[in-house]
């Protein structure tokens, strides 16, 4: 199984998850395994999870399916999931797949945090 590089940072009540690389058919399972524990730890009604896609070069249909599952799981739990900083190719894939209408997508992490949580934004700005 190909692995996606994955890092996460906490800003107050928002976890910013940063996968890196190509989320192709082989790497999608790795993404799912890294992401789901973060989703399960999210507190309903507070902050949430932000996916920072600045390091993602490509995403396949299988990778998009992982996002679909993640979105449904968070929605069922009453927790927020958003995506930020799509690279141009990934943004096109989102549009072609009609995924751009399924998630809140922000141009950058700061703008996403501003929308998700004042406390998270303050933590981000403090560095």
């Amino acid at each position: 199984m190909a692995a996606v590089q994955f890092a996460s940072r906490q800003f107050a009540d928002v976890v910013v998850a940063s996968p890196t690389g190509r989320i192709d058919h082989g790497a999608a399972q790795s993404l799912e395994q890294s992401l789901m524990p973060l989703l399960d730890a999210a507190v309903p009604g507070q902050g949430g999870v932000l996916l920072d896609f600045s390091g993602v070069e490509y995403i396949s249909s299988v990778g998009l399916r992982v996002l679909m599952i993640a979105g449904k799981r968070m929605h069922a739990r009453g927790a927020a999931l958003a995506i930020a900083t799509l690279q141009p190719v990934v943004a096109e894939i989102f549009a072609i797949s009609r995924f751009n209408g399924l998630f809140r997508v922000y141009p950058d992490v700061r703008e996403a945090l501003a929308a998700m949580s004042p406390a998270a934004l303050a933590a981000f700005d403090r560095g």
Partner: peptide, 23 residues
């Protein structure tokens, strides 16, 4: 269908998408 429809509201309807076709 679109990929989004094919794996969400129209999952198990037995059809596919242009995205999966290309892949």
């Amino acid at each position: 269908y679109s990929l989004a429809d094919a794996i969400s509201v129209k999952a198990d309807w037995g059809h596919s998408s242009n995205v999966v076709g290309v892949e």
